[in-house]
Computed example of a mutant assay.
Amino acid sequence: MTRSSVRTVAILDDVVTKLIAEIPDMPAELFPENPAAYRLNHPKGALLLSFPGSQFDALVRSGQNVPAKAGCSRPQARTIGLTITVVLRQLNGRDGAVDALDDVRDALRGFRPSGCRSDLEFVAERFLGEMEGNWQYAVDLVTTVWDGAAAQT
């Protein structure tokens, strides 16, 4: 099996590392595999990164210009979605969830994970609700790669 050069896990690791470096007073980690059992231990909150999926651009096939060959594959443009769930014990104020959303945008604005073709782009912020005294928002982002390419340019 041939692996594509850009691995999704490496992109997730890069984003978590960037969040830790830029927002050192709050833990950043991958979204828990069992959210119902997740326990928020930090007194302020946490930033939880997840991968909701990707979109792929259609390959352009020009008939005579690109003859079909057995075993021939071409790189395909892939837009990778990421979601950061901001979980905080306080909603408003200097250490609240709304302030943390600004921190996340400041930390990731202009950041390009290794192997990606584009900087992270913000798509949306959504209020998810309050659960057991913890306020939750989601920050949706995207970046692009050439899936299956030997190297990103």
Rank of each mutant, 00 (worst) to 15 (best):
I84F: 10
L49W: 03
L12R: 12
P113N: 10
A46N: 05
E132G: 02
P27M: 08
V123N: 08
V86N: 07
R89V: 13
K44D: 08
T79D: 06
R39A: 10
D140T: 05
G53V: 07
V142M: 09
T85I: 06
L40D: 01
L48C: 03
G110T: 13
P24V: 00
N65V: 07
V139Y: 14
D140W: 15
R61K: 12
Y38S: 09
L101D: 03
V139K: 04
A10V: 00
P27Q: 05
S114T: 04
A46T: 01
A138H: 04
D119Y: 11
A97F: 12
L48E: 04
L120T: 02
G63W: 14
P32F: 09
A10M: 04
A10W: 00
S114K: 10
F31G: 00
G129C: 07
R61L: 14
C72V: 11
A21N: 06
H42K: 06
L12K: 06
V66N: 14
C116T: 15
R39H: 11
R112P: 01
V60N: 08
L12C: 03
P113G: 06
V139T: 07
C116A: 13
A70I: 14
R109N: 13
Q76Y: 03
L82E: 02
K18R: 15
L19A: 06
L101F: 05
V104E: 05
P75H: 10
V9I: 06
D140I: 10
A36G: 01
P24A: 11
G133M: 03
Q55K: 12
P52W: 12
N134H: 12
R112N: 13
R78P: 04
V98N: 01
L108V: 10
P27Y: 06
R126V: 15
A97E: 02
A68E: 14
F56P: 03
A138M: 09
C72A: 15
S118A: 09
S73L: 06
L47Q: 04
E121I: 11
D95R: 14
S50N: 14
R89Y: 11
L12P: 00
V16D: 09
H42F: 12
L120I: 13
L120N: 01
D14W: 00
V142I: 14
A10Y: 01
V87A: 14
T83H: 00
Q55P: 00
A124T: 11
I80K: 03
R94I: 15
L48A: 01
K44W: 10
I23G: 04
F111P: 08
F127L: 13
F31D: 02
L82A: 13
Q90S: 15
F127N: 09
E121S: 05
R39S: 03
P113T: 08
G81Q: 12
A138F: 02
M26W: 05
D99H: 08
R105S: 06
R89P: 00
A68H: 11
A36N: 08
M131K: 14
P67Y: 08
Y137W: 15
N134G: 00
L91H: 15
Q64K: 13
D99A: 13
T83C: 01
N41T: 13
V15D: 03
S62L: 07
T83L: 03
P32I: 05
G45A: 05
L49K: 10
D57Y: 01
